[in-house]
Simulated assay, not measured.
Amino acid sequence: MSSGRTALARHIVRLIEETGPIPLSQYMALALGHLEHGYYMTRDPLGMRGDFITAPEISQMFGELIGLWLADSWMAQGAPKSFVLAELGPGRGTLMSDALRAMRAVPDMVAAAEVHFVETSPVLRKAQKDLVPQAIWHDRIDSLPDRPLFLVANEFFDAMPIIQYQRTGRGWCERQIGLTDGRLSPVLAPVPLAGDKGLPPAMRDAPSGAIAEICPAATAIAETISSRISASGGAALIVDYGHLRSAPGDTLQALRGHQYVDPFDTPGEADLTAHVDFEMLALAVRDGGAQAHGPVEQGAFLAALGIEARAARLREKATGSQARDIDAALRRLTAPGEMGSLFKVLAVTPQGAAAPAGFV
Results as ranks from 00 to 15, higher is better:
272 L>V: 01
86 A>H: 04
240 D>A: 06
291 Q>D: 14
59 S>G: 06
67 G>W: 11
272 L>R: 01
292 A>R: 04
142 D>V: 05
63 G>A: 13
71 A>C: 13
316 E>H: 08
175 R>H: 01
137 W>C: 01
309 A>P: 01
325 D>L: 10
229 I>P: 06
329 A>L: 06
239 V>G: 05
165 Y>D: 03
38 G>K: 03
268 G>E: 05
235 A>W: 00
241 Y>K: 03
258 H>G: 04
48 M>T: 13
188 L>C: 01
202 A>I: 11
9 A>G: 15
16 I>G: 00
7 A>S: 14
76 A>H: 07
222 A>S: 13
259 Q>H: 15
30 L>S: 06
344 K>F: 13
110 V>R: 11
254 A>D: 05
207 P>A: 15
242 G>L: 05
152 V>S: 12
222 A>Q: 04
16 I>W: 06
53 I>P: 00
357 A>P: 14
159 A>V: 13
134 Q>H: 00
307 I>M: 13
85 L>C: 05
294 G>R: 09
104 R>W: 09
300 A>D: 15
345 V>D: 13
93 G>N: 08
198 G>K: 05
14 R>A: 15
201 P>K: 10
47 G>N: 10
251 T>K: 03
130 D>L: 13
4 G>M: 08
310 R>Q: 15
24 L>S: 00
145 P>C: 04
33 G>M: 02
295 P>C: 06
5 R>K: 13
59 S>A: 11
218 A>M: 03
23 P>S: 08
142 D>R: 02
21 P>Q: 01
29 A>D: 12
87 E>W: 10
160 M>Y: 10
205 D>V: 05
102 A>F: 11
83 F>P: 01
16 I>A: 00
201 P>F: 06
128 Q>W: 02
209 G>W: 02
16 I>H: 03
74 W>G: 00
336 P>D: 12
305 L>R: 09
54 T>A: 03
107 P>W: 09
274 A>E: 02
162 I>A: 13
119 E>Y: 08
265 D>M: 03
117 F>V: 01
279 E>D: 07
205 D>R: 11
36 E>A: 02
209 G>R: 05
54 T>H: 11
22 I>M: 05
105 A>H: 12
71 A>H: 12
226 S>R: 09
233 G>M: 07
269 E>S: 03
342 L>W: 06
291 Q>W: 12
104 R>A: 07
305 L>W: 07
275 H>Q: 07
336 P>V: 13
119 E>V: 09
289 G>A: 11
93 G>W: 06
317 K>V: 13
5 R>M: 10
26 Q>Y: 06
159 A>Y: 14
60 Q>A: 12
60 Q>R: 12
346 L>K: 06
359 F>W: 06
200 P>D: 03
137 W>D: 07
349 T>G: 07
124 L>E: 05
189 A>G: 02
53 I>Y: 12
72 D>C: 02
199 L>Q: 00
294 G>D: 07
339 M>N: 01
95 L>Y: 15
331 R>T: 14
219 T>E: 11
335 A>V: 04
339 M>A: 08
157 F>M: 10
132 V>P: 02
146 D>I: 07
357 A>L: 15
354 A>V: 11
